[in-house]
């Protein structure tokens, strides 16, 4: 009795497996039950092409965030060469991405508020200039006295004034401002 039951169960399972296999063949699905990669491949290729189209070869990379919203501009000039960068965010000043001074309410903590020079920034820039001059001398090149200022759009003119003056004191003579390109001259800015 038990063996007959066993046989009928086995026959039923076999039948089920055959039916399933037929269905699979009908649907043209792979027998091993693997995932079809073609559609995923398509999506990934599209993403890759999109990213390659936006691939940046600019020597300068800026990631705007809440405290560093660059002003919009219609300028057509691109960043052509790598220079010393001076970032004036809403909460601090950075030189080549290294934090140097903190800013609170558009003001720098200095002992002399009326002075145009920001002492900590001046010391740091002097150090940077010294290193760059040494490097340029070793490479038998001329020191490039260009500085790119990446400033938050809502920075007060007073602070920009101080930053430019301090950079000028540290022997930088050419100034460039980083802006977001292609910005429309919107009514409200």
């Amino acid at each position: 009795m038990d063996s007959r039951k066993q046989q009928s169960i086995e026959a039923w399972l076999k039948q089920q497996a055959e039916d399933k296999s037929k269905k699979r063949r009908k649907k043209d699905l792979p027998d091993d039950g693997g995932v079809t990669l073609s559609s995923l491949m398509d999506a990934v290729t599209i993403i890759l092409i999109f990213l390659l189209m936006n691939f940046s070869t600019d020597p300068m990379k800026v990631t705007p965030h809440e405290k560093l919203q660059l002003p919009l501009s219609t300028t057509m000039l691109n960043a052509k060469e790598k220079t010393t960068t001076l970032t004036v965010a809403a909460d601090g000043i950075l030189v080549d991405d290294k934090p140097v001074v903190t800013i609170k309410n558009n003001q720098v903590d200095t002992s002399d508020a009326t002075s145009l020079t920001i002492p900590q920034l001046k010391d740091h820039l002097d150090q940077v200039v010294k290193e760059r001059k040494e490097l340029a001398a070793r490479l038998k090149q001329n020191f490039k006295d260009i500085i790119t200022i990446i400033a938050h759009g809502e920075t007060h003119y007073r602070l920009i004034n101080k930053v430019i003056y301090t950079a000028g004191q540290a022997s930088f003579t050419k100034f460039k401002f980083a802006v977001v390109k292609g910005g429309q001259l919107k009514q409200k800015i």
Partner: peptide, 13 residues
């Protein structure tokens, strides 16, 4: 990838 295009504005000394 840089989704924001950065431009330059030159200012004299």
């Amino acid at each position: 990838t840089q989704l924001v295009k950065i431009g330059m504005v030159n200012v004299s000394a």
